[in-house]
Design a protein around this nucleic acid. Structure first.
Length: 169
DNA sequence: TTAGTGATATCC
DNA sequence: GATATCACTAAA
């Protein structure tokens, strides 16, 4: 079953752990790819110092304020595209980062493998012929951990257990 | 451990 | 206009 707007239209702390174990389906001219999500991170609004939206609404973060299910693609370190999905509804800048997929390691590799770049920025995960997310009924144990690469956000925010990882068993 | 890379935000 | 920063990876 393909995830619709209702799935994303909730708090990112609910959406992020539920996305673990789901499948990203990516369709390109070369065919169709499927990757099971193994790791996500939640970024929760302007009060979250680690969230891009914490510095206010800018042209880049504008998409975080869009409808739930909007795809937010961001180029980091000049070389890597990171993919997020907007959650929490309009004018509520929450997002979930797709951090890793099965057989891969790291968000940069995930997007490279799926041929994701800014051409998908601003698209949505439903009613989209290029990319969507499926639930095949797979359930997995999930563990949490502090988020990665957010040292700049200060102790309170960098220690939040908002990283969700598929557990081996 | 360090280099590489470029969009974005922030400061002139 | 300039420069500092960054939700990373690969090579060493």
């Amino acid at each position: 079953m393909i995830l619709g707007k209702d799935f994303f239209d909730r708090d990112c702390l609910e959406v992020a752990p539920e996305l673990v174990g789901k499948i990203i389906v990516r369709k390109t001219d070369d065919g169709e790819m499927r990757v099971r999500i193994t790791e996500t991170e939640a970024y929760r609004g302007e009060e979250d110092k680690a969230c891009h939206a914490s510095r206010g609404r800018t042209p880049r973060t504008e998409l975080l304020y869009a409808e739930s299910g909007t795809i937010y693609i961001y180029l980091i370190y000049g070389m890597h595209w990171l993919m997020n999905v907007v959650t929490g509804g309009k004018d509520n800048p929450q997002g979930v980062l797709f951090r890793c997929g099965e057989g891969l390691s790291g968000p940069g590799k995930l997007t490279r493998h799926l041929k994701i770049d800014k051409s998908l920025n601003g698209k949505s995960f439903f009613s989209n012929p290029q990319i969507w997310i499926e639930d095949d009924g797979f359930k997995s144990a999930i563990k949490t951990a502090p988020r990665v690469g957010v040292d700049y956000a200060g102790d309170e925010w960098k220690s939040k257990p908002w990283r969700f990882i598929m557990s081996a068993e």
